[in-house]
């Protein structure tokens, strides 16, 4: 098992949320959207210019920027 931040997941790669680097309002909002310890996340794709990212969270697709994704620790 290795730990990395969400923005470093490869396209198509999945992982489990492990924790947050920093839990400010952005982190709390991500938690409310379903990213918290134990959530399974899949990186779907990156936008053509490399940012933002599209991820699968639970049963839906969410787009977020690399900066916010870098707050989330993933175990894959």
């Amino acid at each position: 098992m290795e730990t990395l931040t969400l923005d470093r997941l490869e396209d198509g790669q999945s992982g489990t949320v492990h924790g947050f680097r920093r839990l400010g309002p952005s982190g709390l909002r991500l938690m409310e959207m379903g990213l918290f310890e134990g959530s399974r996340i899949t990186m779907v794709r990156r936008a053509p210019l490399g940012d933002p990212l599209e991820i699968q969270v639970g049963d839906y697709r969410l787009s977020l920027r690399r900066d916010e994704a870098a707050l989330v620790d993933i175990a894959s």
Partner: peptide, 11 residues
């Protein structure tokens, strides 16, 4: 008053 967060659902 806080930066905006870009977080959009792709329905």
């Amino acid at each position: 008053g806080g930066a905006a967060l870009f977080l959009i659902e792709l329905p």
